[in-house]
């Protein structure tokens, strides 16, 4: 029997409420408001209270997939990354770095956003970076 409470931040809206993920026997079983958090002071909205449900959903993607002529094939990470990198390299070589665009996201962390724009700017060589949040 294990039970732990892991502090985190709600990833639904921009308010940034403090939550505790409740993990029992290694499974994510619930989300609680963090009582002493300066933002939400022990309260959450309906989305926050159910934050764990999207994470434990059956519908989560579990393997990299390649789509060949409309058929999805499960592949390993090396194949998926290798395929994507080769195609990107070819496109950059043929059409220049500005033929590539990267859309970063308001749902991923700061560290990941930082890396994604670094990827576009340094690895690809383009400033074509934007996020959907202006929409």
């Amino acid at each position: 029997m294990t039970l732990k409470f892991v502090p985190s931040i709600c990833s639904y809206c921009g308010t940034g409420c403090g939550v505790l993920f409740q993990v029992m026997d290694g499974q994510l079983v619930g989300t609680l408001p963090m009582k002493t958090h300066p933002v939400n002071q022990g309260k959450l909205c309906i989305k926050g209270w159910n934050l764990h449900e999207h994470i434990t959903s059956e519908l989560r993607l579990k393997h990299p997939l390649l789509n060949t002529f409309g058929r999805m094939t499960k592949v390993g990470w090396d194949d998926a990354i290798g395929f994507a990198a080769d195609r990107l390299k070819t496109i950059v070589a043929e059409h220049g770095p500005d033929s590539v665009g990267v859309l970063v996201s308001a749902k991923i962390t700061n560290e990941e956003n930082y890396l994604a724009q670094k990827f576009a700017r340094a690895a690809v060589g383009t400033n074509n970076v934007d996020h959907c949040a202006r929409l």
Partner: peptide
């Protein structure tokens, strides 16, 4: 206590 916040904990 975790960084100044009392959090529930299961002691074993």
């Amino acid at each position: 206590m975790d960084c100044g916040h009392p959090l529930p904990h299961a002691f074993t």
